[in-house]
Computed example of a mutant assay.
Amino acid sequence: MDPFKIVAVSAGLSRPSSTRLLADRLAEATRHSLQDHSPRPVDVQVVELRELAVDIAHNLVTGFPGPALRAAVEAVTGADGVIAVTPIFTASYSGLFKSFVDVIDNTELIGKPVLIGATGGTARHSLALEHALRPLFAYLCAHVVRTAVFAAAEDWGAGDAQSGGLGVRITRAGEELAELVLNEPGGTVRDEAVVPFAQQLATYRIPR
Protein backbone atom coordinates (compact mmCIF):
# COMPACT_ATOMS: atom_id res chain seq x y z
CA MET A 1 0.00 0.00 0.00
CA ASP A 2 1.19 3.48 -0.81
CA PRO A 3 1.73 5.53 2.34
CA PHE A 4 -0.29 8.56 3.33
CA LYS A 5 1.86 11.60 2.62
CA ILE A 6 1.73 14.30 5.31
CA VAL A 7 3.84 17.41 4.72
CA ALA A 8 4.42 19.95 7.49
CA VAL A 9 5.58 23.42 6.43
CA SER A 10 7.48 25.31 9.12
CA ALA A 11 8.21 29.01 8.64
CA GLY A 12 10.26 29.36 11.81
CA LEU A 13 13.36 31.52 11.46
CA SER A 14 15.40 30.50 14.50
CA ARG A 15 17.05 27.24 15.48
CA PRO A 16 15.76 25.69 17.64
CA SER A 17 12.33 26.99 16.67
CA SER A 18 9.03 26.80 18.54
CA THR A 19 7.35 26.92 15.13
CA ARG A 20 9.20 23.76 14.05
CA LEU A 21 8.40 22.16 17.40
CA LEU A 22 4.69 22.82 16.91
CA ALA A 23 4.84 21.50 13.35
CA ASP A 24 6.50 18.29 14.59
CA ARG A 25 3.90 17.80 17.34
CA LEU A 26 1.02 18.32 14.91
CA ALA A 27 2.59 15.91 12.42
CA GLU A 28 3.00 13.25 15.10
CA ALA A 29 -0.59 13.67 16.26
CA THR A 30 -1.79 13.25 12.68
CA ARG A 31 0.43 10.21 12.18
CA HIS A 32 -0.87 8.52 15.32
CA SER A 33 -4.49 9.17 14.37
CA LEU A 34 -4.02 7.82 10.83
CA GLN A 35 -2.29 4.70 12.18
CA ASP A 36 -5.17 4.16 14.61
CA HIS A 37 -7.70 4.12 11.76
CA SER A 38 -5.87 2.67 8.76
CA PRO A 39 -3.30 -0.08 8.05
CA ARG A 40 -1.60 2.14 5.46
CA PRO A 41 1.83 3.46 6.46
CA VAL A 42 2.31 7.19 7.00
CA ASP A 43 5.16 9.20 5.49
CA VAL A 44 5.80 12.55 7.24
CA GLN A 45 8.02 15.20 5.67
CA VAL A 46 8.90 18.60 7.12
CA VAL A 47 9.68 21.54 4.84
CA GLU A 48 11.84 24.15 6.59
CA LEU A 49 11.28 27.46 4.81
CA ARG A 50 14.29 29.12 6.46
CA GLU A 51 16.48 26.84 4.35
CA LEU A 52 14.66 27.93 1.18
CA ALA A 53 14.53 31.69 1.81
CA VAL A 54 17.06 32.61 -0.90
CA ASP A 55 15.46 30.23 -3.43
CA ILE A 56 12.03 31.70 -2.71
CA ALA A 57 13.32 35.25 -3.27
CA HIS A 58 14.97 34.23 -6.55
CA ASN A 59 11.79 32.54 -7.71
CA LEU A 60 9.70 35.63 -7.02
CA VAL A 61 12.10 37.71 -9.14
CA THR A 62 12.83 35.27 -11.97
CA GLY A 63 9.76 33.04 -11.97
CA PHE A 64 11.92 29.91 -11.94
CA PRO A 65 12.32 27.72 -8.81
CA GLY A 66 15.61 26.07 -7.96
CA PRO A 67 15.75 22.29 -7.44
CA ALA A 68 15.27 22.44 -3.65
CA LEU A 69 12.30 24.81 -3.89
CA ARG A 70 10.73 22.81 -6.70
CA ALA A 71 11.00 19.65 -4.58
CA ALA A 72 9.37 21.42 -1.62
CA VAL A 73 6.49 22.71 -3.74
CA GLU A 74 5.96 19.27 -5.27
CA ALA A 75 5.94 17.72 -1.81
CA VAL A 76 3.24 20.13 -0.64
CA THR A 77 1.06 19.87 -3.74
CA GLY A 78 1.41 16.08 -3.82
CA ALA A 79 0.62 15.55 -0.14
CA ASP A 80 -2.53 13.90 1.15
CA GLY A 81 -2.56 16.42 4.00
CA VAL A 82 -0.64 19.62 4.74
CA ILE A 83 0.27 21.16 8.10
CA ALA A 84 1.13 24.86 7.80
CA VAL A 85 2.75 26.58 10.78
CA THR A 86 4.06 30.14 10.87
CA PRO A 87 5.27 32.60 13.49
CA ILE A 88 3.05 35.66 13.86
CA PHE A 89 4.69 38.97 13.02
CA THR A 90 2.74 42.27 13.22
CA ALA A 91 -0.60 40.46 13.63
CA SER A 92 -0.21 38.21 10.59
CA TYR A 93 1.76 35.33 9.07
CA SER A 94 5.43 35.89 8.30
CA GLY A 95 6.58 37.31 4.97
CA LEU A 96 8.62 34.16 4.32
CA PHE A 97 5.53 31.98 4.78
CA LYS A 98 3.42 34.15 2.43
CA SER A 99 6.19 34.24 -0.17
CA PHE A 100 6.31 30.43 -0.21
CA VAL A 101 2.55 30.26 -0.67
CA ASP A 102 2.86 32.79 -3.51
CA VAL A 103 5.15 30.49 -5.52
CA ILE A 104 2.54 27.70 -5.44
CA ASP A 105 0.00 27.78 -8.25
CA ASN A 106 -3.39 28.94 -6.95
CA THR A 107 -5.13 25.80 -8.22
CA GLU A 108 -2.77 23.29 -6.58
CA LEU A 109 -4.33 23.39 -3.11
CA ILE A 110 -7.99 23.11 -4.14
CA GLY A 111 -9.66 20.62 -1.80
CA LYS A 112 -6.37 19.86 -0.03
CA PRO A 113 -6.81 18.94 3.67
CA VAL A 114 -4.87 21.57 5.64
CA LEU A 115 -4.20 22.05 9.34
CA ILE A 116 -3.09 25.57 10.32
CA GLY A 117 -0.96 26.50 13.30
CA ALA A 118 0.98 29.50 14.55
CA THR A 119 3.35 30.58 17.28
CA GLY A 120 3.84 33.92 19.01
CA GLY A 121 5.13 35.59 22.13
CA THR A 122 1.72 35.99 23.76
CA ALA A 123 -1.76 34.55 23.32
CA ARG A 124 -3.09 37.89 22.04
CA HIS A 125 -1.59 37.00 18.65
CA SER A 126 -3.80 33.90 18.35
CA LEU A 127 -6.55 35.75 16.46
CA ALA A 128 -4.21 35.93 13.47
CA LEU A 129 -5.10 32.30 12.78
CA GLU A 130 -8.70 33.29 12.06
CA HIS A 131 -8.30 36.71 10.46
CA ALA A 132 -5.19 36.01 8.38
CA LEU A 133 -4.23 32.34 8.01
CA ARG A 134 -7.65 30.73 7.59
CA PRO A 135 -8.83 33.29 4.99
CA LEU A 136 -5.61 32.73 3.03
CA PHE A 137 -6.30 29.02 2.64
CA ALA A 138 -10.01 29.63 2.11
CA TYR A 139 -9.05 31.80 -0.88
CA LEU A 140 -6.98 28.89 -2.19
CA CYS A 141 -10.03 26.61 -1.73
CA ALA A 142 -8.19 24.29 0.63
CA HIS A 143 -10.19 22.21 3.12
CA VAL A 144 -9.04 23.63 6.46
CA VAL A 145 -9.73 21.66 9.64
CA ARG A 146 -11.94 23.21 12.32
CA THR A 147 -9.29 23.34 15.03
CA ALA A 148 -6.43 25.79 14.52
CA VAL A 149 -3.56 25.55 17.00
CA PHE A 150 -1.74 28.54 18.46
CA ALA A 151 1.20 28.13 20.83
CA ALA A 152 2.38 31.09 22.89
CA ALA A 153 5.65 31.17 24.80
CA GLU A 154 3.90 30.26 28.06
CA ASP A 155 2.42 27.12 26.47
CA TRP A 156 5.90 25.63 26.20
CA GLY A 157 7.23 26.93 29.52
CA ALA A 158 4.44 25.97 31.92
CA GLY A 159 4.36 22.25 32.64
CA ASP A 160 4.12 19.53 30.05
CA ALA A 161 2.95 20.87 26.68
CA GLN A 162 2.00 17.33 25.72
CA SER A 163 -0.59 16.86 28.47
CA GLY A 164 -1.93 20.37 29.10
CA GLY A 165 -4.24 22.56 27.06
CA LEU A 166 -1.84 22.77 24.13
CA GLY A 167 -1.51 18.99 24.04
CA VAL A 168 -5.29 18.60 23.89
CA ARG A 169 -5.56 21.05 20.99
CA ILE A 170 -2.73 19.35 19.11
CA THR A 171 -4.35 15.93 19.48
CA ARG A 172 -7.76 17.20 18.39
CA ALA A 173 -6.35 19.01 15.36
CA GLY A 174 -4.35 15.94 14.33
CA GLU A 175 -7.46 13.78 14.54
CA GLU A 176 -9.42 16.24 12.41
CA LEU A 177 -6.73 16.32 9.72
CA ALA A 178 -6.51 12.53 9.74
CA GLU A 179 -10.29 12.32 9.31
CA LEU A 180 -10.15 14.58 6.25
CA VAL A 181 -7.27 12.61 4.76
CA LEU A 182 -9.12 9.33 5.28
CA ASN A 183 -12.38 10.65 3.81
CA GLU A 184 -10.83 12.63 0.96
CA PRO A 185 -7.61 10.78 0.09
CA GLY A 186 -7.28 12.51 -3.25
CA GLY A 187 -7.79 15.96 -1.82
CA THR A 188 -10.19 16.81 -4.64
CA VAL A 189 -13.27 18.95 -4.94
CA ARG A 190 -16.30 17.76 -6.85
CA ASP A 191 -16.81 19.98 -9.89
CA GLU A 192 -20.57 19.96 -9.43
CA ALA A 193 -20.20 21.57 -6.02
CA VAL A 194 -18.75 24.74 -7.58
CA VAL A 195 -21.42 26.87 -9.25
CA PRO A 196 -20.07 29.80 -11.31
CA PHE A 197 -21.17 33.20 -10.05
CA ALA A 198 -22.72 34.14 -13.41
CA GLN A 199 -24.91 31.01 -13.24
CA GLN A 200 -25.98 31.83 -9.69
CA LEU A 201 -26.85 35.38 -10.74
CA ALA A 202 -28.90 34.16 -13.70
CA THR A 203 -31.17 32.15 -11.41
CA TYR A 204 -31.70 34.99 -8.95
CA ARG A 205 -35.05 36.72 -8.99
CA ILE A 206 -35.95 39.87 -7.10
CA PRO A 207 -38.86 39.03 -4.78
CA ARG A 208 -42.09 40.98 -5.39
Rank of each mutant, 00 (worst) to 15 (best):
L115K: 03
F97C: 03
I104G: 03
S38A: 06
Q45V: 08
H32N: 11
L140E: 08
V42I: 08
T77M: 11
F64R: 11
H143P: 01
R70N: 15
V101F: 10
E51H: 07
A123E: 11
P135L: 12
H131N: 14
T30N: 12
L140A: 03
C141Q: 15
D36N: 02
R50F: 02
F97A: 11
D105M: 01
A132I: 09
I83E: 02
H58R: 12
A79Q: 01
L69S: 04
K112Y: 02
I116M: 07
F89G: 02
G121S: 12
R31W: 01
L109C: 00
S92L: 14
P39F: 12
S92R: 14
F64A: 05
T147E: 10
I56D: 00
G111E: 07
S92G: 15
H143Y: 12
L127Y: 13
L127V: 14
V54C: 07
G78F: 02
R70I: 03
L69K: 00
S126I: 03
I104W: 02
H125S: 03
F89V: 10
V101D: 01
I104P: 01
S126C: 10
T30S: 14
L115F: 00
D43V: 06
F100M: 01
S126R: 09
T77A: 12
D80M: 07
V101S: 13
T86D: 06
R124K: 06
K98R: 15
I88K: 00
S94H: 14
L60I: 15
S94M: 10
F137T: 10
L34Y: 04
R134C: 05
I110Q: 11
G121L: 04
A71F: 10
A84L: 08
V145I: 11
E130Q: 05
V42G: 04
R70F: 13
N59F: 01
V144E: 05
S99N: 13
P65I: 06
L49G: 04
V82W: 00
E108W: 03
H58L: 12
L140S: 10
G120T: 08
V144L: 08
D105F: 00
G78N: 09
R146Q: 13
H32R: 01
L52A: 08
V103W: 05
A128I: 07
